[in-house]
Simulated assay, not measured.
Amino acid sequence: MLYASSTDTDTEVLLEEDIDVDSGTPADLIVYNDDHNTFNWVMKSFEEILGHTNAQSEQLALLIHLKGKATVKSAPKSELRPKKEALVDRGLSAVIEDR
């Protein structure tokens, strides 16, 4: 689906993925285990980006290490997207999955 609007000077085209139709859809932010991030870095990232306490961050880091992945936050997609991008920018492997 494309949406185009024209003005006298320019044309804007929005692709379907740019139109945020399910921004309020409940979703989970999942982080996967990897071999290059330290526990301290993961915990610090969870505290700074997700607002988790040190104890929450430690428990999640341990779950990720032992189980291979963990849901670190549940919220509407629109709230999770910037948090996922911030975690990915720090080198973590994170995805958003619909509930």
Rank of each mutant, 00 (worst) to 15 (best):
V72I: 14
Q56S: 07
D35M: 14
A70P: 01
L80G: 03
D22L: 13
A55L: 10
G91N: 05
W41C: 03
E47A: 05
A27M: 02
N33Q: 13
K44M: 14
V21N: 14
L80I: 09
S57K: 00
A75E: 14
M1L: 05
Y3A: 02
T25W: 04
K73L: 09
S5Q: 10
F39P: 04
M43S: 06
F39N: 12
D10N: 12
D89K: 06
N40C: 05
N54P: 00
E16S: 12
E12Q: 11
D22Q: 15
A86I: 07
R99E: 14
G51Y: 06
H65K: 12
L80Y: 13
D18A: 15
L2C: 08
I49G: 02
D8F: 07
L63Y: 05
L29R: 00
E12S: 05
K44W: 07
E17T: 13
D35Y: 09
V88N: 09
A61D: 02
S78T: 10
S23W: 14
V95R: 07
T9K: 12
S5M: 10
A27L: 08
D10W: 11
N37F: 04
V95W: 02
H36K: 15
T71R: 03
N54T: 11
T25N: 04
D34A: 10
V42K: 01
S23M: 13
L63F: 09
S6G: 11
I19T: 08
Q59R: 12
P82M: 13
T25H: 10
L92G: 00
S5C: 04
G24I: 06
I64D: 01
E17Q: 15
D22I: 13
L62F: 10
R99Y: 05
G91M: 06
P76L: 09
V42L: 09
L15S: 13
D28C: 07
S45E: 03
Y3M: 04
D18L: 08
S23I: 08
S6A: 08
L87N: 00
S6P: 03
G51L: 06
T11M: 15
G51H: 06
S78P: 08
S93P: 00
D35P: 06
L29W: 00
L50D: 01
L29K: 01
E47W: 03
F39C: 06
A4P: 00
A61C: 10
K77T: 06
A27Q: 04
A4D: 03
A27V: 02
A86V: 04
N40F: 05
T25F: 04
V13W: 08
I19E: 15
F39H: 15
M1D: 10
Q59K: 15
F39M: 14
L60A: 03
L63N: 09
K77A: 04
D18I: 11
D10F: 12
R90W: 01
Q56D: 15
L50S: 04
T9A: 08
L14Q: 12
E85P: 00
G68I: 12
I49R: 01
T25L: 11
L63H: 11
V21G: 09
S74D: 03
I96A: 02
F46N: 02
Y32M: 09
T53E: 10
S74T: 10
A61L: 01
N33A: 08
L87D: 01
P82A: 11
E48A: 12
G91Y: 04
Y3L: 07
E16T: 11
R81I: 11
M43V: 08
K69H: 12
A4G: 05
S23P: 02
H65P: 02
D18Q: 15
L66G: 03
T38A: 13
S93F: 03
A61N: 00
N37T: 14
